[in-house]
């Protein structure tokens, strides 16, 4: 069966400034990032959709001990998009040594950054980023 939207196509969308996802023709739920079935009901009739790229931070952490290939400190967060899905990304444009306690609930715009190939990463990657608005 053909993939409705692959992770490479999702990345290419982000690089072109578009947040792509899938809208279920059965239940209307948005599935972001994409997968082969609807994240809510499991249906396979999915249509590529453009999301508005806006959301709010639901939770976050400041990574102080980083994995090989990353330089701490940096913020990792989960944001809830306006259309419903939650995405993981890095909060950018904020000094992590400032008080970050008020971050939950802040409105953000989804952007991206390209991550050069890591060991064991099957090539270049793209991380979602969140810009505070």
């Amino acid at each position: 069966m053909d993939y409705p939207l692959t992770h490479r196509q999702f990345y290419e969308g982000l690089k072109a400034g578009e947040l792509l996802g899938l809208k279920c023709q059965s239940c209307g739920t948005y599935t972001v990032p994409p997968k082969i079935t609807c994240a809510e009901c499991g249906h396979t009739e999915l249509e590529i959709a453009r999301l508005n790229g806006m959301g709010k931070i639901r939770t976050f952490t400041v990574i102080r001990v980083a994995p090989e290939g990353f330089n701490a400190p940096y913020i990792v967060a989960l944001a809830e998009l306006d259309e419903g899905p939650w995405l993981m990304g890095n909060v950018e444009g904020l000094d992590v040594d400032d008080n970050v306690d008020g971050l939950i609930g802040r409105k953000v715009r989804v952007d991206h950054k390209v991550i050069p190939p890591l060991n064991y990463s099957a090539g270049e990657g793209v991380a979602v980023t969140f810009q505070l608005v």
Binding site: F70, V76, A77, L78, S121, V128
Partner: peptide, 24 residues
């Protein structure tokens, strides 16, 4: 590995996010 590892999330980071969400 496709959508979350590239953020540099760590295992303690996952539970850091659980803790922040729990308090909130």
């Amino acid at each position: 590995s496709r959508y979350e590892v590239f953020t540099g999330v760590t295992f303690p980071g996952v539970f850091g996010m659980v803790a922040r969400l729990y308090a909130d």
